[in-house]
């Protein structure tokens, strides 16, 4: 039986009737049309689907849309909603923190959470903070640089 789901995503309200089994990632991508969060696995390891729900990053492939009913969701599309890149986005760009870009939306969301909770992380703390996000291209080093640069910029 379909259920009504009310979500606020990147500042916009979405009301839809959905099957309970609809995963939040599929809701975001196919119902709300926000294809920034990606699907990289089924076992909630890779983190490509990472979005923030009420300020906390989650893997949206491991959550049903109905669970998020009433929540405030931020996806990568909402990070530069005003048209100005966020400091973390700028840092990823400047430091070459991405190659194929597939992990990047999730990686940026996790990195933002990291700095929200720890504005001056060490290299080890940065690595720990993005351990839920796999990247197959960069070897993570430029991502670490990017997070450090964003921290320095006061992101």
């Amino acid at each position: 039986m379909k259920q009504t789901t009310n979500l606020r995503i990147n500042g916009t309200s979405y009301v839809h009737e959905v099957e309970p089994r609809l995963l939040l990632i599929h809701y975001l991508r196919e119902v709300a049309g926000l294809t920034g969060p990606h699907i990289g696995c089924e076992t909630s390891i890779c983190g490509a689907c990472t979005v923030a729900i009420d300020g906390k990053v989650v893997k949206s492939c491991a959550m049903f849309a109905v669970q998020a009913d009433g929540s405030d969701i931020l996806t990568i599309e909402g990070v530069a909603a005003s048209g100005t890149l966020g400091a973390m986005q700028e840092a990823f760009w400047n430091e070459h923190g991405l190659q194929c870009g597939f992990c990047t939306p999730g990686m940026i969301m996790a990195s933002r959470q990291l700095l929200e909770r720890n504005p001056t992380p060490t290299e080890a703390e940065i690595r720990h903070g993005i351990d839920g996000n796999l990247c197959r291209c960069t070897g993570y080093q430029h991502i670490v640089n990017a997070v450090q640069a964003a921290a320095k910029a006061g992101a």
């Binding site: 909630s44 983190g47 990053v57 989650v58 893997k59 996790a110 990291l114 903070g129 351990d131 839920g132």
Partner: peptide, 9 residues
């Protein structure tokens, strides 16, 4: 436990 996303939920 797990990673930050898992610990958040």
């Amino acid at each position: 436990i797990g990673d930050v996303q898992v610990r958040n939920v």
